[in-house]
Design a protein around this nucleic acid. Structure first.
Lengths: 193, 193
DNA sequence: GTTATTTTGGATCGAATGGTCCAGAATGGA
DNA sequence: TCCATTCTGGACCATTCGATCCAAAATAAC
């Protein structure tokens, strides 16, 4: 077989720009014309590479989930309070640094499209679960190590933390400033005692 | 002047249906054709009464804010813990009862349109402030009454509560079930001591 | 060099969009 | 009764949407 003409663009590079655009403007508000312009590739190349708009959106969402939205590891050799504080602080820092895009592309996707898009819904539920499980495991370890009191319920605590993290998504949109968001973290993490 | 032919529909009734549609599908995903069909009035009547789509959206949003999304009073003669628990529980109950529409129309509006719509942004910031102030005032009173410990910071606590409330918006979308959401409330409210 | 295959981007498609026009129906005042 | 005014709903408009077509350019295998 012949290899013919090679692509003139890098797929992942283009996808990153698509992530940025969808992240900032959402699905419906982003037209394929906007995409062609922002991606800097031809219309036909775009359709050939990614399929239709919906497929491009899912590809961008998955790229986000494996990149900026990736689930960091939770090593057990770090004090749990410091660790959780760092995770939350990172989220706040990102929200303050990029107020124009929401805190989390997946969260925005869930709000906009969960009702009409099972693929988005599936990813959102899956990621919510992963997040909850990661927190739960870490908190169980912390409980076993005596880092947190024995009266704590790791699973409930984990859900609580995920909920707080989700709350930051909206709080950050109202006030993307450290002076507003940091005190929320203090109270949120104070339940660990 | 003559009065001519009276309208055949009730403005608020129609607006309620518009709220329901925008609430469920968002702004971009709702077409004016959908609106005409769902509202049961003629296209021209719709435009004559509310102006264009954007104006209709803002009218619906304001109707929501004065109706289902209205800020309840926070009387000081009710135990503050029971009061807050009731507020949060009401939100959860509503989310469980209507999983197809998000927890709060304003929250969805903020996520979808804040970046490109100053009017929406303004309403979201204003309401966030109102909510925070209402909680703050109630918590200050509770502190003065000795209902909560003297070490608490009412303002920080209020922001924390608003953040938790916002978090429910997303948590409820992932799992609109009491078994999942109720434990979150327990932990959230446990910071009051 | 020739050829087969692929990329590329402009042209273009039908459908859907938000919005307007207009003729006719319905009403209250004279 | 007649008229002025308003409401109503179908027809209609220009634009934009997502998506496709097609001819020209570019490349690897032969």
């Amino acid at each position: 077989q012949t290899m013919a003409r090679p692509k003139e663009f890098d797929r992942d590079e283009v996808l990153d720009r698509a992530v940025d655009l969808f992240w900032r403007n959402g699905y419906e508000a982003t037209s394929m014309a906007d995409m062609v312009e922002a991606l800097g590739i031809g219309r036909q190349s775009l359709y050939d590479t990614f399929g239709d708009k919906h497929a491009l959106y899912l590809a961008a969402l998955d790229r986000y989930l494996g990149g900026p939205g990736a689930l960091g590891a939770l090593p057990v050799d770090v004090p749990v309070r410091k660790q959780l504080r760092a995770i939350f602080q990172t989220m706040v820092d990102r929200a303050v640094a990029h107020p124009e895009r929401g805190l989390c592309m997946l969260g925005a996707a869930a709000v906009e499209r969960c009702a009409e898009d099972d693929e988005v819904s599936k990813r959102f539920c899956r990621r919510t679960h992963e997040l909850e499980d990661a927190f739960t495991r870490r908190l169980e370890q912390a409980k076993a190590d005596g880092e947190i009191g024995a009266h704590h319920d790791p699973r409930g605590l984990a859900r609580y933390l995920v909920n707080a993290l989700y709350g930051l998504q909206l709080s950050a949109r109202a006030h993307p400033r450290h002076a507003f968001l940091d005190p929320i973290l203090d109270v949120t993490l104070s339940v660990l005692g």
